[in-house]
Design a protein around this nucleic acid. Sequence first.
DNA 1: ACCGTGACTGACG
DNA 2: ACGTCAGCCACGG
Length: 109
Amino acid sequence: MSQPNDFFERVYEVVRQVPYGKVTTYGAIARFLGAAKSARTVGYAMNAAHHLEDVPAHRVVNRIGMLTGKHHFGGINTMQQLLEAEGHTIIDDQIQDFETVLWQPKKEL
DNA sequence: ACCGTGACTGACG
DNA sequence: ACGTCAGCCACGG
């Protein structure tokens, strides 16, 4: 349906709307869905979304811009490489100028 | 139905 | 400023 009832699908809907060259956080997605305290569950959803090609999971990081989920992309540096390919600079698993490339659905939508 | 787990976050010392 | 602790919620066994 146009309005998914499953929590996971709602998470995917938001992630799919993250613009190229931008990133967002688990908490931002959770708050946008009205479940501010379900950030962990959002991460859990990403884990399950890993098999979906239309869900840019690499654009979702934690609140400080660290690639905490890099190990879930198969290769240790896969997530970093994907982000660098979009123009981001990553040092020590952290996105540089994170606040500049941050995309918040709560504000943008 | 209960328990453990986790790609998080905010609060505390 | 930094490391540690506890709360949260959805899913699988």
